[in-house]
């Protein structure tokens, strides 16, 4: 389980953020000692840090610089400062992403997932049960057949793959599609999912995407 450290001084946001991350199958830890954030980071050794700019004692940008001088753990700045200058500054100090409050929680999760994916230097080909998926080429195949997925189908399938064994809401899939410049509507999503299902069926994986009525889908 990936460990995410939350550096944020508003208690309510911390707790909600922790709940959100836990729901998305991450281990979320909240920084408690603002006097020595670096020591705390060393102790918990997180896989990713969500860092606010307005925090007590030391400004987030300073913390960012200090972390970067010793550690290359991915850092997402999550802040209410939405000026281009702040953003450029954070990137120049070595932040990996910059998200402004108030954010769409699904977008935050997408950004986190994107960073983990980038870090994962595994090959382009992922396997699932008895099939293999080549995301770059947009094909899924087993020993006998190979099937081409459309861009939308691939976005949906790889998102389900990355979030196996938990229920993925339709809203999340939609956000992911729109984030990838595919501005489809609700009906189109349903159509895409049923096409994806029938393509998986051709490879002998019928009913691997289950519908949880009123909530979303789960890839078992």
């Amino acid at each position: 389980m990936k460990k995410i450290l939350i550096i944020e001084d508003d208690e309510s946001i911390c707790n909600e953020l922790q709940a959100l991350l836990k729901g998305a199958a991450y281990d979320a830890i909240i920084l408690t000692d603002f006097l020595d954030p670096l020591g705390f980071i060393e102790k918990v050794n997180p896989d990713l840090i969500l860092l606010d700019i307005n925090i007590p004692y030391m400004n987030g940008e300073m913390v960012l610089q200090k972390i970067r001088s010793t550690n290359d753990v991915p850092i997402i700045m999550v802040t209410s400062c939405n000026s281009e200058t702040d953003e450029v500054l954070s990137y120049s100090y070595g932040a990996d992403d910059y998200i402004t409050k108030p954010y769409n929680p699904h977008i935050l999760l997408l950004r986190i997932a994107a960073i983990f994916k980038r870090m994962d230097h595994s090959s382009e080909v992922i396997s699932y049960k008895n099939i293999k998926i080549n995301i770059q080429k947009g094909i899924i195949y087993n020993d006998q057949t190979s099937i081409i997925l459309t861009k939308n189908e691939m976005i949906i399938f790889s998102y389900l793959l990355n979030n196996q064994n938990r229920i993925v809401e339709r809203e999340e899939l939609m956000t992911n599609l729109w984030d990838n410049f595919e501005y489809i509507n609700d009906n189109a999503l349903t159509v895409n999912i049923s096409r994806l299902r029938s393509k998986l069926k051709e490879l002998g994986l019928a009913s691997s995407i289950e519908t949880r009525k009123g909530i979303g889908y789960i890839l078992s």
Binding site: D10, S12, I13, E16, L17, A19, L20, G23, N54, S80, C81, K101, P102, Y103, N104, P105, H106
Partner: peptide
């Protein structure tokens, strides 16, 4: 003030998702 007000709004947004 805008920075301040964004904190409860963020918190509320997260709450409604959670």
């Amino acid at each position: 003030w805008i920075h301040e007000i964004k904190i409860p709004v963020t918190s509320l947004t997260l709450m409604s998702y959670n």
